[in-house]
Amino acid sequence: MSDDDKTYLPALTRQVSELVLAGSLQHAEEALSQAADEQGDYAVAEVLSTLPPHVTALHLSGFDGGKTSLATLLVPPKAWAESLAYLAATWPDNLIEDDPERIAEGLFNQVHGVVFGTDDIERRHELLQEASATDHGATVFAIIWSLAPREIHELAGEIIAKGPYTTGQTSSDSDFVPLALELAKASEDGWERSLIELFPEFRHSADLADAEFSDDPDEEPAHMQRNTRELLYRLRKQVPSVRSAPRRGARKSIGKDIFS
């Protein structure tokens, strides 16, 4: 890194951070865009890697995959994974209580936008591996799966049965299945952790695959299943202090190499 970079990048980091905290997301994006034009994508990625994770969460929360964002395309996997811990701090209490599905759908759009922002499979898998390696990341994915628990259950069964030959087909054309399948391919442990967050009675997806799901959507499930609102509050409790660094979860790997 040149001497100019050593002074330029910290100054840009402060500028972007201040703009995001002030609510000027568009101006923050403009500053990043100018940096990309003058210094290249590396400079943007470097800035995004040094932003505090709560700032990254605030920044990315303004983009749902339908809006163009350099931050969405270039955020480093580790920085993105750490920022997920702070997302729940951006959600209004009344919206969690009154319309949890709306928050979960927005969360899905944001996660999908980052993961599928480019065609780079290696980056996609690095993003999913980093995010799902944390307790809060497992909860984020479980929130998304809670919008389609039956389809996620079907996918878990297909993955166990077919391994690397799975197509991800379920009884309905769910938008969440491609993301779930990509997570299972990227990180077996991360996939298992997200399933256990949603279905805490099961200790392995093989057990979940044998569970019976009713065809009646109004019938109470025979096994414990966390709903969307419960998971949103669960993530809210996991929001760390901005003074503390996010920590890796203590859960151990429970996978059996499903795609080998």
Rank of each mutant, 00 (worst) to 15 (best):
E219V: 03
R226L: 12
D216Q: 08
R234Y: 09
E230R: 02
P221Q: 06
N227G: 14
E212Y: 07
D210Q: 11
E220N: 06
R234C: 01
T228S: 01
D210V: 00
R229K: 15
D218Y: 12
A209I: 03
Q225A: 11
H223D: 03
D216K: 01
R229E: 11
P217N: 07
K237S: 14
Q238L: 14
Q225N: 10
F213Q: 10
R226E: 14
L231S: 10
E219K: 13
S214I: 04
P221S: 11
Y233G: 00
D207H: 08
R226S: 15
E230Q: 13
L208T: 03
R226Y: 15
S214A: 12
P217Q: 07
F213R: 08
A206G: 04
M224A: 15
M224G: 14
D216L: 04
S214T: 12
D207R: 06
E219W: 06
A209T: 02
Q238E: 11
K237D: 15
A211H: 00
D207C: 01
R229D: 03
A206V: 13
V239E: 08
Q225Y: 06
D218N: 13
E220G: 00
D207V: 00
M224T: 15
E212A: 11
E219A: 08
N227V: 11
Y233P: 01
E220L: 11
